[in-house]
Write a protein that binds this DNA or RNA. Structure first.
Lengths: 340, 340
DNA sequence: ACCGAGGATTTGAACGATCAAACGCGAGTT
DNA sequence: AACTCGCGTTTGATCGTTCAAATCCTCGGT
């Protein structure tokens, strides 16, 4: 039972200020149409009554909910959900600056399209922010076909672009990692990546290959399925094989943790004997016993940019066109795992 | 610009089925008031037109937004936001089962009360879910004074209880940790905790003291400020001092990581020579090189329970009274840091 | 003194749903 | 035959805001 006292409305403010509803509305939405002294009187009444426009009523009339939909995924038990909470916070904050709020929902079916349809049908949101993008993600096309405004965090990696996006330049990030260990004197630099076909993984790999070519190194690529154990196993094979690498650049921090373990198990010292670089700069990277050098994504910037892109698509006044494609540059955080 | 085609409304469904608006409304909200054949006809029309009730219009009339407010805090840079993303997911999922959605917001000022007031004034939410509870949290009293429905994840730890809450029994969790290492043969069991005055910390400490008394051990409590470095420093002092402990029970995983480092630095082996137990079972606890035994909070259960408590307070039909106080029991996840 | 222009303000309608009350109608009662 | 009862259905009003058009008012021009 919510506190029963009905709050002030446009009408009560109007009565207090001795004007009509519409004038109060104008003071809020188009102040230049109101005479200065009238405006002052109305603003005083608004403050006196502590009036705030009823969001729902406004939404009904304007046909805009000022809500952005965001799907939260169940965090897989063993995974280290590295970045998404920071992304969500940045998005929430940036949206609030323009009077928008985030509406969270979960998906119970496979692709979650039913939930998107449901929210659209209810007109609960004005647009969506897509994260956890996968290769061949059906959501982009589905939304575009229905003219639903959205922005994607992560490229779709398939065919032509569908809708605006913001992403982090994984290729450049990996290339920087390679150049970093190269500068430290390493020449046998291996790459521990995901199986082919993952957009993010292929992107990061391409940066490794480009850097090797630039620096005159022969690339050495090893792939493992997602997860700590497979990464550990492949790294162990590398270290036990002929011409073991002196540096391992990994597609993810999880793989890097596996590599660190494999190195330690062999009595070698990370950073000293074998350098390791991860990707994502997960919170655990800075922990003692780990101290992993890692490529950090500018995740707050990504969130803020995504909001600007979406709000512009929604036609929100005061939001200039930020463009439809944003490739952000990551930065390398250097720690002990690459300190000789 | 959202796709312009106006969706179907109650009126259009009514026209298609040859009945009045209200009958369609009744089919949705009180099906037993409608004759079976009429109902079938209306339901067919609803399906044919793919009609979904306009959430905003319904909210305006019923004076209920079916939204729950949740404040997301900026994750402190070095911290390992352990549990809250899982909590948010559980809450979102449980709320959706009753047609409620989560509305996210951030707080820019100190206590964030202005944001709560703003959302209430706009009538954007029906109630709040409070997390990140601190000692003397002003939000509980503030909300209670205004008769705003809410539920708190975390007790307020000050004076009498204000409003319903869900929390994890930290005392029992810590006591179990002590009993666990006791069963492994340890007798000099130290506790590494936060400064006095933190509700959560004092709760966990009390479990340590109770267990010591039960088991006939002399308690040994050391306190450090939050953060990896202070925890590491205090653990080092313990190990270097007279009668060093053979087991260290920590108030948090972060302290446990510091203790692990201190142990490793002295050439001792965690688990083998000195046992360590953390609290929260953060994702990094399972990483290689860490393998930390830790007390895990039943966070999904907490989220689902919190939603039930709040929805009951809101008078949502079909939600039985779950009670106003829920103390959930944590479980110990045993790993190498306590394996002899 | 009249008229038209233009800005400030007000009025009526609408957004799409639900609430409260009225209505139509057949069955049962007197 | 008139009257009541109850069920199923419909009608009008309403939630609080904004849109579109009407109205009021002032002022300058002829």
């Amino acid at each position: 039972m919510a506190g029963g006292q009905h709050g002030p409305t446009l009408a009560s403010v109007a009565a207090a200020a001795g004007v009509s509803r519409q004038t109060v509305s104008n003071v809020l939405n188009a102040p230049d149409r109101v005479a200065p002294d009238t405006r002052a009187r109305v603003e005083a009444a608004i403050k006196a009554l502590n009036y705030r426009p009823h969001r729902v009523a406004r939404s009904l009339r304007t046909q805009a909910s000022r809500m952005l939909g965001y799907r939260v995924r169940p965090t897989p038990p063993g995974e280290l959900n590295p970045v998404l909470d920071r992304f969500v916070h940045a998005v929430t904050d940036a949206a609030a600056e323009h009077g928008f709020h985030l509406l969270l929902f979960t998906a119970d079916d496979d692709d979650g399209l039913a939930q998107y349809a449901e929210l659209l049908g209810q007109r609960a949101v004005d647009g969506f922010i897509l994260a956890d993008t996968v290769v061949g993600d059906p959501r982009h096309r589905w939304l575009a076909e229905r003219d639903v405004p959205f922005v994607s965090f992560g490229r779709t990696w398939q065919g032509e672009e569908v809708g605006p996006w913001v992403d982090v330049d994984g290729a450049t990030g990996t290339a920087e990692a390679v150049e970093h260990v190269y500068a430290l004197g390493h020449r046998r630099i291996a790459y521990l990546g995901w199986p082919e076909g993952s957009g993010v993984g292929d992107d990061r790999l391409s940066g490794y290959q480009a850097a090797c070519q630039r620096l005159g190194l022969t690339p050495r690529v090893v792939r493992a399925e997602q997860g700590m154990a497979p990464g550990h196993a492949r790294a162990a094979e590398l270290l036990d094989g002929p011409e073991p690498p002196t540096a391992i650049v990994c597609v993810s921090d999880v793989f890097a943790y596996g590599a660190l373990r494999a190195i330690a198990e062999r009595g070698l010292r990370p950073g000293h004997d074998v350098a390791v670089v991860g990707f994502d700069d997960t919170p655990a990277a800075g922990l003692p016993g780990i101290e992993l050098t890692s490529v950090a994504q500018p995740i707050e910037q990504a969130g803020r940019t995504a909001v600007r892109v979406l709000l512009h698509a929604l036609g929100v006044p005061g939001v200039p066109d930020p463009g439809r494609a944003h490739l952000l540059r990551p930065t390398l955080t250097v720690r002990a795992s690459t300190s000789p």
